[in-house]
């Protein structure tokens, strides 16, 4: 556990990785990333909604209800990407024993769960007028529901231990094993017959939707990215405050940071 910076530099090369693996060094950096990402999310969110609701033309087959795509697809992508990110940080934590990796993993989980909830809900309200049903137990929808339960299970297990390190390790296993579900979701509509349509943006021969629709969706996707990064950075800073309570560096940093942010 007590690897010195010098040792790790010898073993792993570059200094920057280990520098920011330290909660004390990462705390202010996370604050800067957070502020930048809130701003990006706000600007792109407004732009994306404008493009999606006021500029994109009506869909020839589905009518106006297709506009749900501008939140459904970005939320679904984020739900899957965040789970993979959680698995990545969990793996890193188990492998290298870095405390910050587990904190990142935990900070991502609630945002991922909420993105999954948005994707499920908007999918239901898109499915009703287009397929005639809010829900169907097919491969894509079912594996996505499982993703939600994986998030809930991860959070429940992480919080179930009094010893945070045990919670870290136990929940990291859920994150890793559950990651198998992500490619299953992604390819479900390709591998099995599904009501859910196959990919229309990331596919061979380029996207199959009108350019303005694509722009609206990409803008919304980057807005969701920025939101998720900002939320995770905010939460990881809270986790650091909770866990590093007795660290010497903590008191002035948190105090100063909090005061600056309030003004």
């Amino acid at each position: 556990m007590a690897r010195t910076e010098q040792q790790s530099t010898e073993r792993y090369g570059g200094r920057w990785f280990w520098r920011y693996a330290s909660p004390a060094a990462f705390f202010p950096l996370a604050g800067r990333i957070e502020r930048l990402c809130w701003a990006v999310a706000a600007v792109l969110g407004v732009l994306g909604l404008y493009l999606g609701l006021f500029r994109a033309p009506v869909d020839a087959q589905q009518g106006e209800v297709y506009r749900v795509i501008f939140i459904h697809v970005p939320a679904a992508w984020m739900a899957m990407i965040i789970y993979l990110a959680m698995a990545f940080w969990s793996l890193l934590g188990l492998w290298l024993g870095t405390r910050l990796s587990f904190m990142m993993s935990r900070a991502l989980a609630p945002t991922g769960a909420l993105m999954t909830l948005i994707a499920l809900w908007t999918g239901a309200f898109w499915g009703r007028p287009t397929w005639g049903t809010y829900w169907v137990w097919d491969a894509k929808l079912t594996s996505f529901l499982i993703l939600f339960f994986l998030y809930v299970g991860y959070i429940a297990l992480a919080e179930a231990f009094d010893d945070v390190r045990k919670g870290d390790r136990a929940s990291a296993l859920i994150a890793l094993v559950g990651a198998i579900n992500v490619p299953i979701i992604y390819f479900a509509a390709v591998w099995w017959n599904s009501l859910h349509q196959g990919p229309s943006v990331v596919k061979q021969g380029g996207p199959s939707i009108a350019p303005i629709m694509l722009w609206a969706m990409l803008t919304m996707t980057f807005a969701f990215w920025a939101w998720c990064i900002a939320a995770a950075m905010h939460r990881v800073r809270s986790v650091i405050i909770e866990r590093e309570r007795n660290a010497v560096w903590m008191k002035p940093v948190v105090r100063g940071q909090a005061e600056r942010e309030r003004t």
Binding site: E64, V65, I71, A75, L117, I118, T122, R128, P129
Partner: peptide, 18 residues
């Protein structure tokens, strides 16, 4: 929304709420 306002605004509204 071309008669689909309920579905569109339930989706966007829920997202805003979350």
């Amino acid at each position: 929304m071309g008669g689909r306002g309920y579905y569109v605004w339930m989706s966007f509204g829920f997202t805003a709420l979350v």
